[in-house]
Design a protein around this nucleic acid. Structure first.
Lengths: 259, 259
DNA sequence: CTCTTTTGTCCGATATATCGGACACTTGTC
DNA sequence: GACAAGTGTCCGATATATCGGACAAAAGAG
């Protein structure tokens, strides 16, 4: 079977004898990606240079995990899990890269600290921020995990959860503010409902006694508040300024809308 | 979503001591998918229950392969490779599932053997077929790899390759028909050009002396002939019948167009 | 500034995952 | 029909990948 036509068969990384399972898996998937079509075990063995038994074993493991799928002719190709992971990557990167430019515009136009925030597990986190030209900023650092009840964004992000789910989702200690005050769950839930109705949330003197936070939701294609855009300003800002900023946020959020 | 945050978290499949690297990788990715956001090494260690050193090692391997990416804050998330794999899966499944219903319609309406074909490496293969109600069919079995020069679809699929690339791509022995006749490369190339101009290819008595194959391209979003739809009929079919079938194929192919 | 905690890297021991080969079964050939 | 070639499963030996723990560097705490 004079075979092996154009493919010189580079076993990717490893060429030694007893290779790491993970490396074999990487080789397998790389080959599938090159062929862009299902492959038989035989083809995978030849293409990767891996032992036959290893290929069968790994394919079996990966099939069970949904990473690969075996069709009724025994052909192997990527599975549903890969699709999900790929979507995670795409959604994450697309949203973040577009949010970055939106933030830049907001910060430049209004010269206030603007942020792009998401939930991370049961905490809130600033994913991106832009401080404009302000010498000092009122803002959390990016990536730091903050209790959800401390923030305006948190009230927006929990828009579609029930009181029960929220109580279950957020650790009890997160309802205690830095200064020791405690937020009552009923009040918190009422603010979430209000935020949903208004399309924005405002908090004052919560995490920081001088700060006022304005947050609006960024919806994903499912109408779910997947992230927020927000300004953090001083509490001395007049009503008109707040409205102006909220309008700008809402407009900016719409440009990130729908995926 | 009953989430798990403080939860020690069931390490998916394995709970033993020394786990297989591949299983750990599956656990890692499963966690990332649940969180839908980058995670720190620490979080991954806690979430998966894997040893710290293992997580670092595996993340390093997977990062190098592009399966994961580490941002400048040390956070880990899915990488570009996952995106590519996911696209492979989606494209494959979407196209094939839609082709299946198209084939059913074609076979039902014209009562001829209809097929959906793609390249696989340097061979041609029937991915789907539908024989209508014909008692006997003239058709290759699905999944069998056939030399490209033996088929009408092959002439369509190679539409954008140069003579040189084709000569390089197809093994010399594939130019020899089952009956021993040899196809000259120049003739083959001319037929490819003709197929490209006409938007279809017809072959007679090539792989089978009684068969006539009608093939039209299914273009992907890049205008590339990624697959074909074809009928295999007897050579005795009159010209008008052939035209009728070709028109139906072209129309059907348009419904699969553009991804 | 010192002390503590966390984070990332390195390395050797050993539990075990990988591999080769044998086996049964199917498929193709003459 | 017999024979050859290919495919999928199983199992024990052993090369080695995984893991724990030690270490240095960085980050917090006071």
């Amino acid at each position: 079977m004079s075979e092996s036509f154009t493919t010189p068969n580079a076993p990717a990384g490893s060429s030694g004898k007893r290779a790491r399972g993970v490396d074999r898996v990487i080789d397998l998937c790389t080959q599938l990606h090159r062929h862009k079509a299902p492959m038989t075990p035989r083809e995978l063995v030849e293409a990767t240079g891996a032992p036959r038994s290893s290929v069968y074993e790994l394919v079996s493991i990966l099939s069970e995990a949904g990473w690969l799928e075996v069709d009724r002719d025994g052909r192997i190709f990527f599975g549903r899990a890969m699709h999900l992971f790929g979507l995670d990557y795409a959604r994450h990167n697309d949203l973040i890269s577009r949010a970055r430019s939106v933030l830049r515009q907001l910060a430049a136009e209004f010269n206030e600290t603007s942020q792009f925030c998401m939930l991370e597990g049961n905490k809130y986190t600033v994913v991106l921020d832009d401080n404009g030209t302000r010498p000092f900023r009122i803002s959390a650092d990016t990536g730091v995990r903050i209790p959800i009840p401390w923030t305006a964004s948190g009230r927006v992000l929990l828009g579609d959860m029930t009181l029960e789910a929220i109580a279950d989702f957020i650790p009890a200690e997160d309802f205690v503010l830095p200064d020791g005050r405690e937020i009552h769950r009923e009040d918190f839930f009422a603010e979430i409902e209000k935020a949903r109705d208004q399309g924005h949330a405002i908090t004052e003197g919560l995490a920081d006694s001088f700060a006022c936070c304005l947050a609006v939701p960024v919806f994903d294609q499912g109408g779910h508040a997947h992230a927020t855009l927000c300004f953090t300003i001083g509490r001395d800002a007049p009503e008109t300024r707040r409205d102006e900023l909220l309008d700008a946020l809402k407009q900016a959020a719409r440009t990130l809308y729908g995926h």
